[in-house]
């Protein structure tokens, strides 16, 4: 499934906090080579794809394409960022560890995702939402994440 949308001309408040948080993380991340459009790959059936796309569009001001539940083996070539919901298959959750050292942003639901090599893990049980950053994974990836965003997230205690 491929969706391409033009960036909106005004800021709209995120309809869903989770989607807003993901959008913000995308916005504060800089890739070594800025791909156009930004390719976001999502795993997990219960994800609100529309909200995610709207949020990403609004925060990054870039064209965003979303690929839902694609083959994990293709992820290394076709994704600039991963969003792994709690309901995603185990293969998708392991993907982050396999992509260590490559400029692919990995965001996942549940704090255990950071332990699995993910860069940002979101604690979906808390309101407002909290997230942690795996500074080691971020540092090795070659991505540059705005320190302000890192400060908002609490460094993952489990990160090596």
């Amino acid at each position: 499934m491929l969706v391409v949308a033009a960036p909106p001309s005004f800021t709209t408040p995120a309809r869903e906090p989770l989607a807003a948080l993901v959008g913000n993380l995308l916005a504060y991340t800089h890739w070594p080579v800025q791909a156009e459009p930004l390719r976001l790959c999502i795993w997990g059936r219960d994800t609100d794809v529309g909200a995610l796309q709207a949020s990403a569009l609004s925060t990054t001001q870039r064209k965003v394409t979303i690929q839902h539940d694609i083959d994990v083996a293709l992820a290394a070539q076709r994704c600039d960022a991963l969003y792994v919901a709690a309901s995603a298959p185990a293969a998708a959750r392991q993907l982050a560890r396999m992509l260590i050292g490559r400029p692919v942003l990995s965001i996942g639901e549940g704090l255990s995702y950071c332990a699995d090599g993910g860069m940002f893990c979101i604690d979906t049980r808390e309101r407002p939402l909290k997230f942690q950053a795996n500074l080691d994974a971020i540092a090795r990836s070659g991505l540059r994440v705005d320190p302000q965003a890192l400060r908002i997230g609490r460094a993952a205690g489990a990160a090596p």
Binding site: P17, N24, A27, Y28, P128, A149, R151, I152
Partner: peptide, 12 residues
């Protein structure tokens, strides 16, 4: 406070 506003984090 830009990031804090962005993440809607009133504490930060």
């Amino acid at each position: 406070s830009e990031a804090a506003v962005m993440f809607d984090d009133s504490e930060a």
